[in-house]
Design a protein around this nucleic acid. Structure first.
Lengths: 234, 234
DNA sequence: CTATGATTCAAACGAACGTATGAAATAGGA
DNA sequence: TCCTATTTCATACGTTCGTTTGAATCATAG
C-alpha cells in the first residue's frame, strides 16, 4: 500500500536533522551532512519529504503538535477545575512554559536538543520557518493570552502581551544557550550543575518569569490613552 | 599612505551587510547580495575586509566597542558616585540594558537594526560569531556580574548568573522580534504603538527585568549545598 | 514464483557560493 | 608632469549547494 513507508529511514532522517539543525542552523546544515550522518542515501530526504524546507517543517511538526495539544489540555483541565474563576498567573505560566520544559525531560519527545532548536529558531531569520510556526500555532497563543487577560484584569492588555513576549524570550534564551551561558559565566560556583540542570532550570525560570509578569507597571513619560495602577497579582 | 582608505566603500559595505545580516542571517546572506545592494564590486569585500567572516566581525566590532565602553563608563560613574556603597540592582540593570536600548535610538550607532541583529546573533548557531563575541567582551560581563554580586549579597551567585542570563534572553528577544511579536499578538489594542515603540520598550523592559531579578528565590526539591532566603532587593 | 509498487542507490544537473587574479582606473605627492 | 600606491573592475576558479533522474533493489500480495 502507498501509505506504508520505511519508518526507520524517515525517523532516522528526522532525528539527525533535528540534531544538526540545532548545532549548525538551517542554512548551515546541508543535505549531504544530514543524509550521510543518518546513513541514508542523499536522495532519501527529497523522496520522503519533498524538499529541505518540508523536512524542517516536519521536524517541528513532529514535536510541536504534541506540545501545543498538551498545553491546551493542561490549561483546559485547570480551567475546568477552577469552575469559572480566573486562574492564578502561576498556573497559566506553568501550563505554557512548564509543559515546555518538562517535555525536554522526555527523551522520546526530542529532549533538550529539540528544545534548544526551538529556542534558536524563534530568533532565527529564516522567514519561512517563522511564518510556518506563526500560522500553525496562533490559536494556542491566543488561548493563553485570553487566560492571562482574565487572570490579571487590572493590567492593561498591551502590557500583558509585552510581558508574555519577554517571558518567551527569557525561556527561549535559557534553553537555547549552553554556549551562550558560558559567555556570562565561567561557572566557578556550582560546576556540577551541568548534571541536574534541567531539574533546576524549571523552578529557576518560573521564579524569574512570575517575578517579571507581576512586576509593578512601568511609568511612561509620554501621555497615554489609558493607565492603570500596578498589579499585585496572585 | 597605506592607512588612508576609501571610507565610502567600506562604510557602505558595513551598513548594507548589517541590514542584510539582520534580515536573512549570516549564512543566508551572500556576498553578491551585499556588494550588489551596496553598489560596489563583488571583490570589494575581500579587498577591504579579507573574508566574509572578517566582514561580520567588523560589523559587530564597529558597534559593540562603543557600546561596551559606554556600559563600563556608566557603571564606573555610578560606582564612583556611590562612594564604595553597593549599587541598587536597578542602576546596574539600567547601565547594562538601558545603555543598549538607548543606543538603538541613535541612528548613527546602528539604530534598531543593529540591535535586532545583535539579539538574533546571540541565539544563532554560527559558532565562530559567538566565539568571537564571547572572547571579546567577557570582561564586561564579569564587571557587571561582580556589581550584581555586591548589590545582592544575600542571593547565591549562581542564581544571579542565571537571572542575568534570563534578562539577556528577554532583552534579545524583545529587540530581535518584530515579526515574532506578531506571533503573540495581533495588536488589536494599541496599534499605533509601532510609532513610539522604542520610547516605551525601555520602561516596559526595565520593569519586567527588575521584577524577575528580585523575585523570590526558587525552591528545589533536590537537596542543595547552600540555600539562602529570598531577597527583597532595592 | 511472479508481478507490482515502494524504496534505495549512484550519478549527474545547473545554480549559487566565497574567493582569487590581473588589468584598468584613480588619486596625491614630488 | 610623472610616479607610485590604492582602489575598482570584469572575469574566472574550484566547491558545494538542493534537486532530479533512471536503474537497481526490496517487500509483499496473488
Amino acid at each position: 500500500m502507498a501509505e506504508i513507508r520505511n519508518i526507520d529511514t524517515r525517523e532516522r532522517i528526522l532525528d539527525t536533522a533535528e540534531r544538526l539543525f540545532m548545532a549548525h542552523g538551517y542554512e548551515g546544515t546541508s543535505m549531504r551532512q544530514i543524509t550521510s550522518e543518518a546513513s541514508v542515501n542523499l536522495a532519501a530526504v527529497n523522496y520522503h519529504f519533498g524538499s529541505k524546507e518540508a523536512l524542517i517543517e516536519e521536524v517541528f511538526r513532529r514535536r510541536l503538535d504534541w506540545l501545543n495539544e498538551e498545553r491546551l489540555r493542561v490549561l483546559d483541565e485547570m480551567e475546568e477545575a477552577a469552575g469559572g474563576k480566573p486562574l492564578k498567573p502561576s498556573q497559566i505560566v506553568d501550563a505554557f512554559f512548564g509543559t515546555l520544559i518538562r517535555m525536554a525531560e522526555d527523551e522520546n519527545r526530542g529532549g533538550l536538543n529539540f528544545l534548544r532548536l526551538l529556542g534558536r529558531t524563534m530568533t532565527e531569520p529564516s522567514e519561512f520557518i517563522r511564518a510556518f510556526l506563526a500560522h500553525k500555532y496562533v490559536h494556542v497563543m491566543d488561548r493563553f493570552k485570553e487566560a492571562l487577560f482574565k487572570s490579571l484584569p487590572d493590567v492593561p492588555k498591551a502590557e500583558i502581551v509585552w510581558r508574555f513576549h519577554f517571558m518567551l524570550g527569557a525561556t527561549s534564551y535559557a534553553i537555547a544557550g549552553t554556549d551562550t551561558l558560558r559567555l556570562v559565566t565561567d561557572w566557578g560556583v556550582e560546576a556540577a550543575d551541568t548534571e541536574d540542570r534541567l531539574d533546576r532550570l524549571l523552578p529557576r525560570l518560573m521564579s524569574f518569569l512570575l517575578g517579571g509578569l507581576r512586576a509593578p507597571l512601568p511609568q511612561f513619560n509620554t501621555p497615554v490613552t489609558e493607565q492603570e495602577p500596578a498589579t499585585k497579582a496572585a
